[in-house]
Write a protein that binds this DNA or RNA. Structure first.
Lengths: 107, 107
DNA sequence: TTTATATATCGCAATATTACGATTATATAT
DNA sequence: ATATATAATCGTAATATTGCGATATATAAA
């Protein structure tokens, strides 16, 4: 086969994995870094900043949108989007909670 | 094509993406959760706990090992491994730093 | 040394991701 | 209404991931 057996895992495990998947590409890290550092939400120069073709950037943006990390207008010319702060901070907490759950003292 | 253009991104961006990639599968999240919650480092029952075939578990463990998140003995019978606490906490900080860098107030 | 037990590796098929050229859709300006 | 600029979608090739059966390897016990 080759498809992930998502059904044998918990919702929480799948959700964290899915969020991690969005961060699992340097282009998407770079895009998120860039957008989150902007004062305003004009992001038409992403293609120049990142250095990938326009359809590729569009695809990556779509991955980021799908988990709700961006908000704003997404159609037509002069689109305007920025980080969805609530989702952003929720994810931060989610990752933090995952990493905080550790209790071992062996090896 | 189809291969990631890793060379056009910074080392930090690639490293964070690579770490996220390891977390980007529910099986690996489940494996890490399980190991990190163990008091001792006996993990021979991972196949039963997770519910994937033994070679598949072995593959996932290898992905986790590759970024240094596990330490211990990895060969032969009765292997003994656990979370590499230093790397674990370094990653936690790394993700936290990424999520902390945000300054926008638009949309 | 043989046997039992557990993990690693190989090989392969199914699926997913990545990237981009070509095209289409959308919105603004003229 | 037409032209222009920008983003989304389509189609496709290359590559990567996922999963597991079969097999090899390593350790411990008899």
């Amino acid at each position: 086969m080759g498809a992930s057996k998502t059904h044998i895992f918990s919702i929480a495990e799948n959700e964290l994995a899915q969020a991690a998947k969005v961060l699992a590409h340097p282009a998407r890290i770079a895009i998120l870094e860039y957008i989150s550092k902007q004062e305003n939400c004009i992001c038409t120069d992403l293609v120049d900043v990142i250095g990938l073709a326009q359809p590729t950037i569009s695809q990556h943006l779509n991955e980021i949108k799908k988990i709700g990390l961006l908000k704003g207008t997404f159609e037509g010319k002069n689109l305007c989007y920025c980080i969805n702060r609530e989702k952003w901070e929720a994810l931060q907490q989610y990752f933090n909670a995952f990493f905080s759950n550790i209790n071992q003292n062996c090896c």
